[in-house]
Design a protein around this nucleic acid. Sequence first.
DNA 1: TTTGTTTATCGCAAATATACGATGAATATA
DNA 2: TATATTCATCGTATATTTGCGATAAACAAA
Lengths: 102, 102
Amino acid sequence: MIRTLADTAYSLEERQLADFAKALGHPVRIQILKILINQSCCFTGNLTEIFPLAQSTISQHLKALKEAGLIQGEIMPPKVRYCLNKEKWPLVQTLFKELLKL
Amino acid sequence: MIRTLADTAYSLEERQLADFAKALGHPVRIQILKILINQSCCFTGNLTEIFPLAQSTISQHLKALKEAGLIQGEIMPPKVRYCLNKEKWPLVQTLFKELLKL
DNA sequence: TTTGTTTATCGCAAATATACGATGAATATA
DNA sequence: TATATTCATCGTATATTTGCGATAAACAAA
């Protein structure tokens, strides 16, 4: 992909918001996030039981949500417990709230 | 891409929300949307002056926003005036509001 | 140490996204 | 009719996303 001036032409907030939105741009990740919002934390294994997807695929979606800063993972050997990213979540809410004028 | 049961495993709302989020998943489209939210409508030509991107690229981003239902275009020869999609906008607000518990 | 459990990562294939220049379509004006 | 303006679409190249199975890593328990 060719990116020139555009790379620096966006504000931090615009890039953050786009990254958050991009991470929300798949129905599986919407569902995962809903689970974490509504019923606190869960393990990867719980999700592989719910979704008709391979374990590796679920893990990739979790990685995408984690890298976007929407969720965080806590290692509890041999499991990993995922929760909302409590630090970033207020920013997520604020940025969408501001954009959509809610 | 292989999709099996998953295609039907998502609710309409989840797919809609994912589509909206996906369309918001690029900083240029965030900026375009901001312009339309804050200063009403604009023409494609206005945007090609603002962004350091080819006219065809801007047009593609507008198409993405339009197909997601976020904006609508009105032909005013030889220009096209883009505005927020007034019909869909309340749904956009509602779905994000519900997800993020705003 | 060996085995089982759980999860992440690698490697691959197919689909989608992003960018550009070139071209086409629609319309107003000369 | 011919020209200029505006915008969309086409064709192409490259990057990213999405999915899978296979494998590796981390650790508990036998």
